[in-house]
Every structure is written in C-alpha cells, then in structure tokens.
Design a protein around this nucleic acid. Structure first.
Length: 192
DNA sequence: AGGAAGATCTACT
DNA sequence: GTAGATCTTCCTA
C-alpha cells in the first residue's frame, strides 16, 4: 500500500485537487474496510477566496483548516457532513473538498449506511460519500498520512485519462473560479 | 436569545 | 427544475 504523505498535500490546493483524482479513499470501520476511488474534487484557497470557510479567519469550527498538510477538515452542512483534506503549510488554511467517489470495496456496508441500492447513488456527492463511509465530525482534524488511521488515501497507480475543469458547485460567493475537477466521462460525479 | 446562512439531499411536479 | 427539510455555526442585540 502506498499511502499519500505530507509532501503530496503540501502544495497548492489546485494541484492537489487534480492529483487526488483517481486516488483511493480508505475507511476502516469496526474492522471493515470501505474504499472508493476519487472522481471529483474542489479546491478552496487560503486567501482571496470568499467561498472558503477560512475567509473570515479562524473559528472553533474551522480550526482544522489551519493544521499542517494531510489532515482532515470535516464540517457539517445542513444535515450532512463534508470531507476536506488540508493542503499547504501550518496556518495556511487551504483545502481540497472530496465531492464524489466510485465505490470499490465494502459496497454492502455503503448501501446499508446510505439506505440506497443504486451504485451511482452511494457516493456521488460530498454529503452522500460521508454517509456511505461513516465520516463524521469525530474524525475532524485527524492525520490522514498514517496507516493506523481510520481514514487515509492511497495511490494504486491508477492513471486518469482526462480531467475536466469546471466551476464550483453549491456556493454563493466567488463562483466564477474554475476550481472544480472531475474525471471525464465517469458516471460517479455529482453533476456534469 | 434569536435569526439567518450555508461547500446538501430528496422528492415531487 | 424547484421547493422543502433540517441542523450546526456564527453574528447581532
């Protein structure tokens, strides 16, 4: 197994967002393994990005964004959770939001957690994938670079053929930037 | 203490 | 395509 290390994440979120496509999220849950390949991401910058949660400074909710590269930032949104990976140095609050996965292992568990049967409904959205992998705020701020973590990202050598760049979804500010990336022609994305 | 906004999802028309 | 559900966090008084 090839777990992505701090050096991978210690770069601009725009680069990390693209490079995370095709990588695999591994969730260890009660001895079970749930995995999914990342098909869609969005970058949130540390400064001059009004859509970023860190734009208005450090608050109890956003403190994980100020951790070092390779930590998790998990926040609640409406009735869901969203999962980000922190990029760049300590006190540089940038991150990459994981927006969609392609289910690989633990599909039965995901179906149970989601209450859905359709494969493409399991993890095709930021809130959906958190539910399918049982990612909750108790994992907020954990280190994603260790294999004894309950959550980490691996590289299995998969090569993404073609990446599509688009505008971010679901935000009301700074909508003009094309900071969203997804694997072309993949059906497990939240929206074309 | 109250209210509004938010990186969403689901169901229904 | 649009509306409604629903909950946590933060700002203001």
């Amino acid at each position: 197994m090839n777990i992505l290390q701090k050096e991978f994440y210690n770069r601009s979120p725009l680069e990390v967002a693209v490079d995370l496509l095709g990588k695999i999220v591994v969730r260890k849950l009660d001895g079970q393994i749930i995995t999914g390949r990342i098909t869609e991401t969005e970058a949130y910058l540390a400064s001059s990005d009004e859509a970023s949660h860190s734009f208005k400074g450090k608050t109890p909710r956003t403190q994980s964004l100020f951790l070092d590269a390779g930590h998790a930032y998990i926040h609640s949104m409406h009735t869901q959770n969203c999962f980000d990976i922190v990029t760049e140095s300590i006190d540089v609050p940038s991150s990459v939001l994981i927006r969609a996965l392609e289910p690989l292992e633990g599909i039965e568990t995901m179906k149970k957690l989601r209450g859905k049967e359709e494969l493409k409904d399991l993890t095709s959205g930021p809130g959906k994938l958190c539910k399918a992998l049982s990612v909750t705020r108790s994992l907020d701020g954990i280190d994603l670079t260790k294999d004894n973590s309950e959550l980490f990202i691996i590289d299995d050598g998969f090569v993404v053929q073609s990446v599509v760049k688009a505008k971010r979804i679901g935000i009301s500010k700074a909508k003009e930037h094309e900071y969203r990336f997804y694997i072309k022609d993949n059906i497990y994305v939240s929206k074309k």
